[in-house]
């Protein structure tokens, strides 16, 4: 049984360490520090913590001004507000001048649960990925969220990282290394490539187990950086397996599935099935029930893999 941990707790831990390690780091929040866990930084480094109140657009502008003055800025709130509310501010103030601002969102995906569609970011990867100069990261578990936070602090440029609200199964090592733009093959296989991001990676691993029992050998890739996409790892895998499945807690429009589809049609066209929400908003409910209703389970990945294999 894998342990379940919340990514945001490890984001907070990483920030608290960065408070000591890097005097350039400034952390911002828009009234949600207790939920995003930027409060962990605030506790140890109040002088470099900036509370902007409920004003996300202003937060991004201030972040840009701080970054232009030499700061490494982490600006956090929930995914919908961190990206959608202030997308054009991110575009002009951060992405265009390539400023050193990390927009780190929690509460992404349908597993936000009871708060409902207004709070369930299912389009954030799509809109952030569309911005030139923007790195987009969706760590698979809490350990990767920690490592990615540290890596982003060292990277000089705009980046977006999305995390969930709930406790996710941990599948990686606590001391894992994270490299921006580098995917990892978590399980080798020969019949189908399954590419996941976020908590879906753990379901991809579960799906691969089930498929193995049915005689289908699945290769699982953790594509925790969605932009820039590690096309080398992707293409090497699908060249071997001949078909592909993507899995993300996000709309199939514009997210990981789209990024993979773009990469495949640029080089090696193989059958691709995309697991994700289907051009729809979410709703209130228990996270586990919503994951079933919206087709985001290991079983959905298994079905998609079989379909992908059958299309070879």
């Amino acid at each position: 049984m894998t342990e379940k941990l919340a990514q945001r707790n490890y984001y907070g831990k990483a920030l608290a360490e960065l408070a000591k390690e890097d005097p350039k780091v400034v952390v911002m929040d828009a009234d949600l520090a207790g939920s995003t866990k930027t409060s962990d930084f605030q506790k140890v480094c109040p002088e470099r913590f900036v509370e902007v109140g409920i004003a996300e657009s202003n937060m991004i502008g201030i972040a840009a001004g701080l970054a232009a003055s030499g700061k490494t800025v982490f600006a956090s709130t929930f995914g919908v507000f961190a990206t959608g509310r202030c997308w054009e501010q991110i575009r002009l103030a951060v992405a265009y001048p390539k400023l050193n601002v990390k927009i780190v969102a929690t509460h992404c995906g349908i597993s936000v649960g009871e708060d409902g569609a207004s709070h369930q970011a299912l389009e954030d990867i799509a809109i952030m990925r569309a911005l030139p100069n923007m790195v987009v990261v969706a760590p698979a578990d809490a350990y990767e969220a920690f490592a990615a936070t540290k890596a982003l602090a060292k990277y000089n440029g705009p980046a977006y990282m999305r995390m969930g609200r709930a406790d996710f199964p941990t599948i990686l090592e606590p001391d894992m290394e994270f490299q921006i733009g580098k995917a990892s093959v978590l399980r080798e296989g020969t019949d189908v490539t399954i590419v996941g991001c976020g908590q879906m990676v753990s379901f991809c691993m579960d799906a691969a187990e089930t498929l193995q029992a049915e005689g289908i050998s699945a290769e699982v890739i953790n594509m925790s950086t969605i932009k820039p996409l590690d096309t080398e790892t992707l293409i090497a895998s699908v060249s071997k397996t001949g078909c592909c499945v993507t899995a993300e807690e996000h709309s199939i429009i514009g997210g990981l599935g789209s990024a993979v589809a773009e990469a495949l049609c640029d080089s090696t066209c193989v059958p691709l099935e995309r697991v994700g929400t289907k051009d729809t908003f979410g709703e209130s409910g228990k996270p586990a029930d919503l994951m079933v209703k919206y087709g985001l389970t290991a079983d959905d990945i298994v079905a998609a893999a079989k379909k992908s294999v059958s299309r070879k």
Partner: peptide, 17 residues
């Protein structure tokens, strides 16, 4: 509508430093 926010960030960095 964005410049004053940016200016706030620059001014805040000045205070911090």
């Amino acid at each position: 509508g964005q410049g004053l926010s940016m200016a706030c960030g620059i001014a805040l960095a000045g205070k911090m430093d």
